[in-house]
Simulated assay, not measured.
Amino acid sequence: MKSIFRILLFAMAMTAFCASAYAQKDSRQRMTREQLAETQAKYIAQKMEMDGTTSEKFVETFCRFQKEIWALGPRPKREVSGRTDAETEQAIKERFAHSQKILNLRHKYYEEYSKFLSQQQIVRVYELEKKMMDRLYHRSQKAKTQKR
């Protein structure tokens, strides 16, 4: 009887401990898009060892660029099955238009970056940004597979 009582007490303690640990894990708040963009910009500036003035200009410019990208809205859907040729053509043209808008923004902000960064620094910014985006994408995919 004592051993059953001990096992039951142990099981209750483990349940209480696991529940509190799980609740703490979920209490983390997600960053807003603006906070994420600023964190990314600061990370890039720190990784590239920018001085204070350049770092401030870069963070401000990077955040403006991200806001303009977000203003474009999400990418148009790729799925074209079950559509007519005219609908498929329209979907492709919408994707091209969206891609062109992104390209125009990238060119605009390339010009902005050129005012205070060297060409090699700009290339490095693009590389670091790509690595971060890949890492975030893989993290989101991993989280999706864990939820299933």
Rank of each mutant, 00 (worst) to 15 (best):
N104R: 13
K57T: 04
Q29D: 07
A143L: 14
E60P: 00
K77C: 04
H98K: 05
W70T: 03
L117Q: 00
Q141W: 10
D134S: 10
L36R: 12
Q119E: 15
S20D: 10
L72W: 04
Q35D: 07
E49C: 06
V125T: 05
L72R: 04
T32R: 03
Q146S: 11
F65G: 00
R64N: 10
K142P: 00
K130Y: 11
A23V: 08
Q100L: 12
R30P: 06
K93C: 04
K67P: 01
M12H: 05
E60I: 06
M48H: 02
T61I: 06
R124H: 15
E68Y: 02
Q100F: 12
T145H: 13
E111L: 11
A13G: 06
F17A: 13
C63T: 15
F58H: 01
E127Y: 08
Y137I: 10
Q29P: 05
K25R: 14
K144D: 08
A23N: 10
A143T: 08
A23E: 08
A37F: 07
M1K: 10
V123T: 14
S20V: 15
R139K: 14
K144R: 14
E112T: 05
Q46P: 01
R64I: 01
R106V: 06
E112A: 11
K101W: 03
T32A: 02
A19P: 00
A97M: 04
Y126R: 14
Y43D: 10
E87F: 04
R95Y: 05
T15N: 09
T53M: 11
P76H: 03
R135Y: 07
M133K: 14
R78V: 08
L103D: 11
K67Q: 12
M14S: 12
E87M: 05
R106F: 07
L105V: 03
Q100N: 12
E112F: 04
R28P: 00
V80H: 09
F10L: 15
E87I: 00
A86M: 09
E112D: 09
Q120K: 13
T32Q: 01
R148T: 09
Q146N: 11
E79N: 15
L9N: 08
